[in-house]
Nucleic acid binder design. Structure first.
Lengths: 217, 217, 217, 217
DNA sequence: TATGAATGAGCCTTCATTCAT
DNA sequence: TATGAATGAAGGCTCATTCAT
């Protein structure tokens, strides 16, 4: 029990550091975040960070791990619902979009993780394994919803669900990425006065996607 | 005329620097590119770079400006063709994807530009204005193709063309981004042996998009 | 008595820490030894080390103090033997060389101590006094053997025994130091295939020394 | 010519940095020397040091390279004299001792180099090659003098000249090392009032060595 | 007495930018 | 115009030491 207590405290500190890192990134951007500032935000000494994380990269990976874990938790609940494939996919998309809107830093951390992955500069660790596991899990939910939809006839059986899933996943990321950059919303010379906000855009995206894969018969 | 000659020389030097920066980024990645190496690649003194660009950021913006300019040139030709809206959109998408596949650095530079935009750390300059103009132009081509399609009946009139254009644009970027990170292709546990390559993924994406917006009547 | 018991326990802990430090240094080298690792090796908390030693330097000094104490113990026995001066000196040298070969860390600790001494950054303490005392003692044994030898005619009476003692002492250290750095053994381009090992080198050294000071009449 | 001029300037700067490093080490000791202070001593920016040396280790190696080069220069002249082997060896020893007395930092740098060598943490470079070459050269001079002495009968033919050379070399280093630590000179409780200085000590050392190896017939 | 989490000074190193030539 | 040597702020990270428990 006593040990559990210390471990709990350790876990809390770890979370505090992740919180602080998220906050600093949110404020200054990913590239501008420094260990110094994260420490100050957490009200800790600089060296303390290294008691909980091997290095800066690990903090970022921990952010990603937390973010993807939280997201998967939500996706997991959706996939268990008794609905048609197309409806599940619909909800998965909405959940993802809502999640990123609320936690934009998680999006950046995921990009960071993928960048390391791409460049093969990830030391194997429990953290990276967890990140990998989470990434696969999210993909799996999408693929499952497509498989369900194809089986129940709500989704057209015209594409390999794996490939389709990958496309949906990455297209979503692109839209989310763009939606985040509020400025781009004004880049199109849009004379109309209708609202051009985040939610409406994402809604249309999901709608288009749905039309593109749903079975019309 | 003498002045023109000198200006021409200046322009050539400028292009040389951009070329070199592109090459260095292609070789080492965006984060690893240094002014030193760009200068060496261009066979110029490091200080010379600053005669043509105010700072490193401006070089990156110039890359984006050139890239978006070249892309727009191709898109412009497509939009002038006498085809249905859906067909034009189709070709626009293909052109974009081909372009990025051939010039991945332009994609990175565009991301860089948008990142600065988002964080409001762009000093106003002729360069940033040009970048902005190009971004709007590309968006406009997409919107135009949608408007044409709605008008000629090839595209469903169910969404505001501005919003739809924005979505298509950003979703495309997401897919392209993902397609670039070869590793993610294997992240889904994919048992099948079918090819899961770049081209096939993008093909499906365009197909889905088209289905999602075309008019079926 | 109760107090004695506690003091004994304290002494045991102290020795444990010294043991652990020696082991860590042996494993990782002098510069790479950290308080953290010494504590871990001793199965103690890091802070506990500071209950027994004022700081890291004191641990090193304690190593030196122990090492020089052990060495002196052996030298003391030799000097008491009923032999000629040259023979005693011979044995002293062999004992020293054997000792260092068996306990290389003591050699490093001695170098450390002398370095502090040289740079005048030794706070006076019982520890430093003890180190100083031990160093003097070892020197004295050598000087005594020389004096004995001069008196019994086995050693030439051509040099001040104090000076000669100092020289023998430091020359021995130099040879031992070199013998420890296995690499240097190969630094001379040595074509022959004869063995060029530690023992043979030191044997020759003692031989040369002996020839250099013994009385030939 | 113009190029030579620039190269000369570069060489001068390089030497300035080495000078400054030597000075800082002389003042603060080897371990306490920092790049910051070396830069300040040289009246240069910290970053400038890295234009002339890859890292701190290279500065130290450069000190060693310079020192061993200068020493070898002196040894080379001695070995060319038309004297008996024992006399040449005598002079080599004296030259070495004078050199180190005048340039104690070179002694430390040599120890540093040998330490890296021992621990196999030397990246191969022109600098390390030069250091290695110099070390071999010095050893060779000693061995040559012994070979000459054996041949001309001035040195006893009782030991392999390679081994003997190594011993002389390392014993000398030990004596020099000790002689440098002025404090140790007082560590023996020396009641006499005779001078116990550096020069006299080293003189005796050479004398003993000579007696130990010279041919008495 | 014993602990180990916390500290922060200080280390080496990088690199965009400047400026004398 | 062209240069590249020089700069120094800033970064990530280590580790001896302290102190609340």
């Amino acid at each position: 029990m006593r040990k559990t207590k210390r471990e709990r405290k350790k876990e809390i500190r770890r979370e505090l550091i992740i919180d602080s890192a998220v906050e600093v990134i949110r404020r200054n951007g990913f590239e501008q975040a420094t260990m110094n500032e994260i420490a100050r935000e957490a009200d800790l000494g600089k060296g303390t960070l290294y008691l909980y994380f091997r290095n800066k990269a690990d903090i970022y990976l921990a952010i990603n791990e937390r973010g993807s874990g939280l997201l998967n938790q939500q996706l997991r609940e959706i996939i268990l619902q008794n609905k048609s494939g197309i409806e599940i996919l619909d909800e998965l998309g909405n959940a993802y979009l809502r999640f990123i809107k609320k936690n934009p830093v998680f999006f950046m951390a995921a990009s960071y993780y993928e960048n390391l992955l791409k460049n093969n500069i990830l030391t194997e660790s429990s953290l990276t394994k967890e990140c990998e596991k989470h990434a696969k899990e999210a993909m799996t939910y999408i693929v499952r919803s497509l498989q369900i939809g194809i089986q129940d006839g709500s989704i057209r059986n015209s594409h390999d669900p794996y490939k389709l899933g990958l496309i949906i996943w990455s297209a979503s990321r692109g839209v989310v990425h763009a939606a985040h950059q509020s400025e781009i919303l004004k880049s199109a010379e849009h004379s109309g006065s209708e609202e051009m906000d985040y939610a409406s855009l994402l809604g249309i995206f999901i709608d288009v996607l749905r039309s593109g894969i749903k079975n019309d018969q």
